[in-house]
Simulated assay, not measured.
Amino acid sequence: MNASNASHPEFQSRTVTVGGKRLAARVGGSGTPIVLFHSLLADSSSFDRILPALAATHQVVVLELPGFGQSEAVGGKLEDIADHIAGGIAAMGLPKPLLLGNGYGGFIALMTAIRHPQLAARLVLADCGACFSEPGRAAFRGMSANAREKGLGAIADVAMRRLFAPEFQQQNPDLVAARKERFLAVDPATFHGACEALATLDVRDKLAGVKTPALVLVGEQDEATPPPMSKELAAGLPDARLEILTGCAHVPQLQAPGQFMDAISGFIAG
């Protein structure tokens, strides 16, 4: 395991090798470990605004999901990615961590809990679900097709609309510009693989087997994974509660970090 200074001085970069593939993370804080899984359209830096608060009470592991940043790709299947991350958590020596996923990362965190039911102590699943509607599936296929033909730049504005409501974009142009730059750095093969995986995902029949306590969150303005998806997810999990975040869209921890922390603090302390 390698360590060096990361973007937050109190965090250290770590890498482990699982099945010959590198998995990278930033680690900081102390206490019960909490592992963060980022969105497809927003990389691991989308958690930066909540890291100080999380690190005050937990050992925080900010993953770079396979195919992002310094983490090597392991293919597009969510099952393979979940197994790879479960191996990485074991290699990092993290006993009974909490898993917190946003968007695409929420789907992977859920898949990890499905396939490795004894791994996590608790789940925070923000802006995800168990299955997309047909229009939702079509949106992923359309984005992938357009990006294949014209490049990620051709869908950057669509991606930002899926992250943030129009009013928030108008009020925060610098933040949106920075997120767009991050999105354009995503590996195209990883993006296409994720779009295909999400367009075909349906784990509704596996939710009853997830006994891990879960907090399901969703921004009321989320267009990428609308609130009905989170409602269905929370209803299907045996031990889950749902909270809708007023005024937020797909990345509430980035848009409203204080509100997000207020929503999860009691649950992750339990």
Results as ranks from 00 to 15, higher is better:
120 A>F: 10
83 D>Q: 12
86 A>W: 04
71 S>R: 10
108 I>Q: 12
70 Q>P: 12
55 A>S: 15
67 G>R: 02
62 V>H: 05
131 C>V: 14
74 V>Q: 08
65 L>A: 09
121 A>F: 02
114 I>Q: 08
99 L>M: 12
88 G>P: 06
65 L>P: 01
94 L>E: 02
82 A>Y: 05
129 G>K: 01
88 G>R: 05
57 T>L: 06
99 L>N: 00
129 G>F: 08
81 I>L: 11
104 Y>W: 11
67 G>A: 11
75 G>N: 06
109 A>F: 05
132 F>T: 00
55 A>H: 08
54 L>E: 03
85 I>T: 09
58 H>R: 15
119 L>H: 03
108 I>C: 14
67 G>T: 05
80 D>Y: 08
58 H>C: 11
90 A>Q: 14
65 L>T: 10
73 A>P: 03
74 V>E: 09
108 I>P: 03
95 P>C: 00
82 A>L: 14
68 F>N: 09
124 V>F: 11
57 T>E: 12
126 A>L: 02
80 D>V: 12
97 P>F: 00
86 A>E: 11
87 G>L: 08
131 C>M: 11
115 R>C: 04
113 A>W: 05
122 R>N: 04
123 L>W: 04
60 V>C: 06
107 F>D: 06
75 G>F: 10
86 A>N: 07
90 A>I: 01
61 V>H: 03
109 A>V: 12
85 I>Q: 04
129 G>N: 05
101 G>P: 07
76 G>N: 08
71 S>A: 13
123 L>Q: 04
110 L>K: 11
105 G>R: 08
85 I>H: 10
123 L>F: 08
71 S>E: 09
135 P>S: 00
119 L>D: 03
79 E>G: 00
129 G>D: 08
114 I>H: 06
130 A>K: 03
135 P>W: 00
